[in-house]
C-alpha cells in the first residue's frame, strides 16, 4: 500500500480519488494508515460484502488457516468475523457513471498492479474526454 502513497499526488492531480478497501476492522485500518503514513481513504469492508459484489472473495482452506494461526495471524481477530475469507487483490478505475473503465485482477495474489499503470490509464482516460 505504500507504493500507492508514492503516486498519490499524481492520482489527485488527474482528478481521481484513491479508495483502498480491506476486510480489516476500522481499528486495524487506522493502525495500517499510521504505520505506513498513508494519506488516502482506507475503507473497512468487514464481512467482505463489497468485495463479494466485485467477485473477489475466496475462503482460506483449513490447512492454510492452521499455518496462519501458527504465524500468529488470527484473521478472525483482524477482520472481526469468523469467515476466514479474503478478497483477491484487485484494482478498478470507476468513472462518474459508476462504470468500470479499467480493471486489474490476478488470481496469483503475489502479483499487483503497478501504480504507474494506474497513472497511465487515468491519463489515457482523461485524454479521451470520457473521464474528467
Amino acid at each position: 500500500m505504500r507504493a500507492y502513497q508514492n503516486v498519490l499526488p499524481q492520482i489527485k492531480a488527474l482528478g481521481a480519488v484513491l479508495l483502498a478497501i480491506s476486510p480489516q476492522t476500522a481499528d486495524k485500518s487506522q493502525a495500517t494508515l499510521l504505520k505506513n503514513f498513508l494519506q488516502y481513504e482506507v475503507l473497512s469492508d468487514v464481512g467482505n460484502h463489497v468485495a463479494r459484489q466485485f467477485g473477489l472473495v475466496y475462503p482460506l482452506n483449513a490447512e492454510v488457516r492452521r499455518i496462519y494461526l501458527g504465524f500468529g495471524v488470527n484473521l478472525a481477530e483482524y477482520n472481526g468475523d469468523e469467515s476466514w475469507e479474503l478478497p483477491l487483490p484487485g484494482s478498478f478505475i470507476v468513472d462518474r457513471s459508476m462504470t468500470v473503465r479499467f480493471s486489474f485482477v490476478d488470481a496469483d495474489y503475489t502479483r499487483r498492479l503497478e501504480p504507474a499503470t494506474i497513472i497511465e490509464t487515468l491519463r489515457t482516460l482523461g485524454g479521451e474526454g470520457g473521464v474528467p
Partner: peptide, 29 residues
Amino acid sequence: LPNAVGRDIRLSAVTAGNTAVISFYRGAW
C-alpha cells in the same frame, strides 16, 4: 463503508465529482 476513523464514505458521492481508483487488499498483518 466506514473509513479508518469511522466516517461513512459512499462511492456515488466520490464519483459525483471524481474518478475513483478502488484497490482491494487483504490487510496488513
